[in-house]
Design a protein around this nucleic acid. Structure first.
Lengths: 240, 240
DNA sequence: TTGCTCCTCACGTCACGTGAGGTGGC
DNA sequence: TTGCTCCTCACGTCACGTGAGGTGGC
């Protein structure tokens, strides 16, 4: 009774490729016998093992673990539970990723179509804020932005631009950072930070940490350089 | 102004590894300059590019695509939308996998703890039925099983065992498959199949296809071999 | 002789991790 | 001289896909 079957035969019956069967032999997962001519020969026991492999593979098991399970080295039930945990972890991670991408894509849809460079900036900022703010903080920030409204946000932006320009003028002029003009600027500065954070001390701390660890250039997206920050910082400290 | 920075420096500031920076240079994604001593030297432009890379990488983009995006070859918005579709596909696939594993694990919890060999059989059967039945059909099958109840299911199992044994006896005895006894057996056979499928023609067709493509041994889990199936098939055809 | 199946290398994939072995400035 | 950082190979990862080049039976 010639019950031995060829690779091509097996491949066709199972939907696997010949190369896959070769590979499984290479790693010792499913080692067929050989005919006189050196051709692979699969008997009923091989086929039985093969279908078990296919079943476990469909559950996403790595081939090495499948090998162990089939040798009876390990508990199949335990392996299944581990696999479940592993899959949940992967799904959670992918879902988080999808959310991130969705947020950027969402920002894209809501706003005007920005130029590519700006979009790359946006992605960079989102990455950075995700590093420094907790998810709850980010929610609070977004709420804060909504409260202020589009118009007020733009006004705040203009205020910042003006304030930074004013401060830079004083610095260039060599004015004393503890003098009366700079004290006034420090007060305006504080007010704007409060407007951004809504007076939330927690949020202000994260913002401060970001400025400290990333440096003012990156944190302010190039609006404030290190020398200006140093100069203003001086004024802020003396008026604290 | 020595604004150039070393690899180790950059690595520490960004949380990347030195090897990663090496790799990015190898593939031309981020190519620093070199100091006189042959050491990598990163300037502000490199750092800027680096943060954009990090941002895009956090969105799960492959490095090659990141390279294209940064060269301005492609539309960033379009890439984001593609990425979203891709991620949804992956999540869907993983979720399906998780469901499969969950079903097997669930069966494990509900029933008695089976021996490993039986569990491997179970996995194999689930794989096979998933290949031959549509999800809706599987739901109908489960409903059908619930309707019958545990007790009746076991009775059906016993009926099958008895019926197969009876048929095998006739076959061994060399009885005419179109004779009166085998006609009776064919009738009982049909009744049991109907009980299994609830008389659902669609389900019966899938079952038939499974027996045809996998062969009776595998489809019946070893209960019916090819010769017996052939013999009974004869009886079924003449009483159709 | 032509087709078909089978065989054995062996490189490529994706983004690095991990040594190995050695050099140059503080 | 000892530490520390830097450098360049080069193999390994996971499960095969994809040729290349050649052989044996119908």
């Amino acid at each position: 009774m010639d019950t031995m079957r060829h690779v091509g035969d097996i491949a066709k019956a199972t939907g696997l490729t010949v190369r896959t069967l070769h590979h499984w032999e290479e790693i010792g997962l499913l080692v067929p016998e050989r005919s006189e001519g050196g051709h692979r020969a699969y008997g009923p026991a091989h086929v039985r093992r093969l279908y078990r492999i296919v079943g476990l593979r469909r559950l996403g098991m790595p081939l090495e673990r499948i090998g162990s399970l089939l040798e009876g080295d390990h508990d199949v039930g335990a392996a299944l539970r581990e696999q479940l945990v592993e899959l949940d972890r992967e799904i959670e991670q992918l879902t988080g990723l999808r959310e991130r991408v969705g947020r950027v894509a969402g920002a894209l849809e809501r706003g005007v179509e920005p130029r590519d460079g700006d979009l790359l900036d946006l992605i960079e900022v989102m990455t950075m804020t995700e590093t420094y703010y907790t998810p709850e903080q980010r929610v609070r920030l977004e709420e804060r932005h909504r409260q202020l409204g589009e118009e007020r946000m733009e006004a705040v932006q203009r205020d910042w631009t003006d304030l930074i320009a004013d401060a830079e003028q004083h610095r260039m002029a060599g004015d004393d950072p503890t003098g009366p003009e700079m004290r006034g600027i420090a007060a305006r500065w504080r007010a704007l930070v409060d407007e951004f954070t809504g007076g939330d001390a927690d949020l202000r701390a994260s913002l401060k940490r970001m400025y400290h660890e990333e440096g003012p250039e990156r944190a302010s997206r190039g609006a404030i350089d290190a020398r200006l920050m140093e100069y203003v910082g001086h004024a802020l400290r003396v008026t604290e």
